[in-house]
Design a protein around this nucleic acid. Structure first.
Lengths: 331, 331
DNA sequence: GAGCCGTTAGAGAGCGCTCTCTCCATTTGC
DNA sequence: GCAAATGGAGAGAGCGCTCTCTAACGGCTC
């Protein structure tokens, strides 16, 4: 009933353990005839290498951890960005014949277990997604000597290779688009300021308004739909005459549209709205959302390539990908 | 630079390897004084047990695979059910100090790697989610001698312990609710017939209509929003006079509502709609959706308990959880 | 004080695999 | 035709850990 070992296969094929190992690992220094016999024995016994034993000696596991530092609700149901990143990274790693181990680092407790898991040598490398400013995980993992890359620039100055999109430039383009269309009072709903994407997109907005000699009007959300709705309400109170708003992500933009509708403002006639991310739902809002698209799929793939490169002593330079304005009807 | 081993800790603490192992594994047969010394050495060296070595000898890994037999798009963005199941199962396993390894079995290729992964002894047990009829995975995994449980009754008659909700009874209740409210031509949009939930919910609907001596009006979708919209269109063509529809899941119900709106039918005045699942979005549809709620969180937790019980030789009996009608405005 | 038992720590085997080193059998070079 | 080179297979060590078995020690009892 016990699973067959190399030894058993060797005995059946009438060869040594070493030879079976060679065949199983695809080395070419085995006579075809013997190779055949070994493969037959493997097949007959249903042999599968014991991964614990293998990685004990090779010091490799073939698995990569994908650590998402967000509460699970957000990762799954709320923010579709994560889905895209996870899917794309998984596909890319699958192509490289690596196993993905997805881990949600929502709570402090899960933090500890994830650290233990990584320190225990379960994975060859780690990909971190969406860290907040005070996240101790990147530093902790880096200290273990396990290769790590980050999706998005780390908020704290940790020397961590990362892949990001041009948040500042993208936000600048978005705000400038609104100004170019003749909007005069362009507000923003910024993202959480303990996240780099939140900070950078606000910076980009500020740059554009400063260049156009206009006053910034800022409310801050936390990248959730509800926070967008609330922030929009505040903006309308602060400046009832605003005629445009750049929202730092589409999810909040959806909330903002809802508030605007409730407040009786027409979009884009009274208030133009531009989002960021180009999520699926942006196409189905009323009206469809103008937004900054960034190449999430490519970014995730680039992150994988960066990590795999690190294994071979490749460069640890950050990768920055461009953004693109998608004009729909909201602004 | 190399990670410290038990040996190193033992040397530093001036004890044997066995003693360190005892302390690390929390055995009580160690003198407090020596225990202290060992713990100090562990701390100073930053020792973390090598999991490969450990599981090589214990034949256990502490990890459980959560295998989702669906394309990733569906798992993440489209169907919020998965998110809830995954989150709830993760929390429950975390409480039992087990690591969750999430694996998406979307393609045939990923099937092979997952089989290899499980056969390789990476995990102590497997939880399967949402299998279609022809899915060869459950049988394959069961053959490996690895404990497996299923979320939802397996479509093919594999002797697999499972946790499910009362799909037949729930659908019956939903359809009966519509009949009780005086609806006379109650149609259904059924789920995919290669999935048990799809089959059972159709059976429940048929039971209710047969008991009320009414004719069944059936269209089949595949549990996606789009398919719901399309199926609704077909139903309206088939029977323009229908005044109610039971939709086998909420996602399709959302699509159906869209079609009804486009066709100029008022909900619930002209056509009453009842869904199944009670997803988050059901509260935000126009009008809010009447639907069958089933305890997804409890179901996932029950699945975990079933699997953990199996390890200790517990019973492999199926668990069936009840459903509950949530009446909102759509029907 | 001898014998006994319970407790705590060490010795050592072995989990299943890889990989280097060695050996043997050919083939090749001169 | 003999030494050297080449290629293929086996022997055996060892990856880092757990766990059983054994030894040592101290405190009992009688």
């Amino acid at each position: 009933m016990r699973r067959p070992t190399l030894e058993a296969v060797a005995a059946r094929a009438g060869v040594s353990r070493a030879t079976v190992s060679r065949v199983v690992n695809g080395q070419l220094t085995v006579t075809p005839q013997i190779r055949e016999a070994v493969l037959r024995a493997v097949d007959e016994l249903g042999y599968v290498p014991n991964s614990a034993a293998r990685s004990l000696v090779t010091q490799r596991t073939g698995s990569i951890a994908l650590v998402v530092s967000e509460p699970p609700t957000r990762v799954f149901s709320e923010d579709p960005m994560f889905a895209t990143v996870i899917r794309s990274a998984s596909l890319e790693l699958e192509a490289a014949d690596r196993q993905v181990v997805l881990m949600l680092a929502g709570s402090a407790k899960s933090h500890a277990r994830i650290e233990r898991y990584i320190a225990g040598g379960h994975v060859d490398g780690v990909m971190l997604i969406s860290m907040h400013g005070a996240d101790p995980l990147p530093a902790a993992i880096a200290r273990m000597g396990v290769p790590v890359v980050s999706y998005g620039r780390p908020a704290v100055p940790v020397p961590l290779p990362y892949v990001d999109n041009d948040n500042v430039g993208g936000a600048e383009k978005a705000a400038r688009h609104l100004l170019d269309r003749g909007r005069r009072r362009v507000a923003t709903i910024a993202g959480p300021q303990d996240m780099i994407a939140g900070q950078d997109r606000l910076t980009g907005y500020r740059n554009a308004l400063r260049d156009a000699d206009r006053r910034s009007i800022v409310a801050v959300g936390d990248f959730t739909r509800e926070s967008g709705a609330v922030a929009m309400r505040h903006l309308l109170e602060d400046d009832p005459a605003l005629d445009a708003v750049f929202v730092a992500n589409d999810l909040m933009a959806v909330g903002a549209l809802q508030t605007l509708r409730q407040a009786g403002r027409r979009v884009p006639d009274d208030v133009a709205v531009v989002g960021f991310d180009d999520i699926e739902a942006a196409r189905y809002t009323e009206p469809p959302l103008t937004t900054m698209r960034h190449p999430v799929v490519e970014q995730a793939a680039a992150m994988v390539r960066l990590l795999l490169g690190l294994f071979e002593g490749g460069p640890a330079d950050p990768v920055i990908l461009p953004t693109e304005l998608v004009v729909r009807e909201s602004g």
